[in-house]
Computed example of a mutant assay.
Amino acid sequence: MQTVQPIKDREKIEAIKKILRASTLRNELLFVLGINTGLRISDILALKISDVLTKKGVVDRLDLREKKTKKKRIIALNKKTCRLIQRYLETERSVARQDEPLFLSQKGTRRPISRQHAYDILNEAARSVGITERIGTHSLRKTFGYFAYKQGIDLAMIQKLLNHSSQTETLRYIGITQEQMDEVVLRLEL
């Protein structure tokens, strides 16, 4: 499996959202949910409408068991993500049943889109905004970690959120290079 990179440019992230929104809200939500939660694509694609919508409305937390680790997790959803879920459900999934996949395939089946299709959606959007680095579905998770780090979130917290065994693994995972670490030291000059 090839290593993919996080998307490190906010302008390109916004451009990708715009491109995906023009195709379907489903595709935009797939991207937004991934970069705002750090969930693996297998967990995102496994979501059902009942995971995000109750009789009271759109949930503000996802309660799930990770496919890879089998660990139970509760993941908060920010307001922007909740609003997008609401809009998506109202416009593209208004007649959906609670037990249906959130990211329903458009091929007439009652199944979620495939990992490959999710990869194709994300890659096409990334290429169209000029991203040349290797991008894949895991780029969403890495982008979450990268921007959490850039916002000053403690590395130990990011490590815990991504369920990594070491901070070194987390730094490598989110694309922090030796050159970037050297630059911090060289600029310090106390």
Results as ranks from 00 to 15, higher is better:
S23F: 09
K67F: 15
D51I: 14
Q86S: 10
R10I: 12
K150L: 05
L89C: 04
S23A: 11
E28D: 12
Q86A: 12
Q98M: 12
K80W: 13
L140W: 00
E90I: 10
V59Y: 07
D43A: 06
G57T: 12
Q180H: 10
T24Y: 15
E169P: 00
N36M: 08
F103Q: 00
L190E: 13
T91Q: 12
T54W: 07
S50F: 08
R127T: 05
L47W: 09
S23L: 14
R110D: 03
T177S: 13
L84D: 03
F31I: 09
I135T: 01
K68P: 10
S165W: 05
N78S: 10
L20Q: 11
D51E: 07
D182M: 12
L39G: 03
R110Y: 02
K17D: 08
F147Y: 05
N163V: 09
K160S: 13
R172W: 08
R73V: 15
G136N: 04
E90R: 14
K8I: 07
I113R: 02
K8P: 02
I85F: 01
A118F: 01
K56I: 03
R65M: 13
S165Y: 07
L155G: 03
V129F: 04
A76T: 14
L188K: 14
I16C: 10
T170W: 00
R111T: 03
V32W: 13
E92G: 02
K79P: 06
P6N: 09
I135G: 03
A156Y: 06
G175V: 04
F144Y: 04
F147K: 03
R111I: 02
S166W: 10
R110N: 01
T3E: 13
L122G: 01
Y119V: 01
V4F: 00
K107H: 13
E189Q: 15
L162W: 06
A46G: 15
E11T: 08
K142N: 02
L45K: 03
A15C: 11
S94E: 13
F147Q: 03
D120S: 05
V184S: 07
P101C: 10
S128K: 14
Q159H: 07
Y88F: 10
I44D: 02
A148W: 04
L29C: 14
L29V: 11
I74F: 14
T168N: 06
Y146T: 00
T132S: 06
L53M: 14
G175E: 04
N123H: 06
L45S: 03
K48H: 08
R73M: 14
L77D: 05
K68R: 15
E124S: 06
K71C: 13
T69G: 08
I74Q: 14
K72R: 15
R26G: 12
A126F: 00
F103T: 01
R111H: 06
K71G: 12
G152A: 05
S94W: 10
E90H: 11
K48Y: 11
S94H: 13
L30A: 12
S105M: 06
D51Q: 09
P112I: 00
Q5R: 14
F147I: 00
K56T: 09
N163I: 06
C82P: 02
Q2W: 08
F103Y: 01
Q180M: 15
